[in-house]
Amino acid sequence: MGKKLISMTVNGQTHEVAVEPRQLLIHTLREELGLTGSHIGCETSHCGACTVDFNGESVKSCTLLAVQADGADILTVEGLANDGVLHPVQEGFTEKHGLQCGFCTPGMMIRAYRLLQENPNPSEEEIRTGISGNLCRCTGYQNIVRAVQYAAEKLSAE
């Protein structure tokens, strides 16, 4: 039951980490790599606060073992901005006030990032379905939907 050495690329940087098999990916990201943007919410794969991009798919990193991430390519909220310039998704959440307390926001944005890769021009309903694995207890979702719509427009204009 000793530690295993894994290698994974997070936000473009390769990391080698020794992890216990029972360590969940979210803990490795937060505690070993210091990437505390992804949050720990429900810990039972309901709330989506721990969502990261994993080999091009949105996953809940509280329900994935770090050892399963050996060789994976991961994007977290810290990797969204480019040289200090906010990603259109981040800009949308700023401009449209897509958050209040901010706890769900990193997971919400990294999910919105992948949703817009999969479907660059989603309808309002498709946005709501697309982010249905991410719970927000403050906003009522209205401004989150507007933030994603803002990002979709900005991305398609680029």
Binding site: S45, T51, S58, V59, K60, L64, T129, G130, S132, G133
Partner: peptide, 9 residues
Amino acid sequence: IADPQVRNR
């Protein structure tokens, strides 16, 4: 079934 993230896994 569940939500997009769960359906991915």
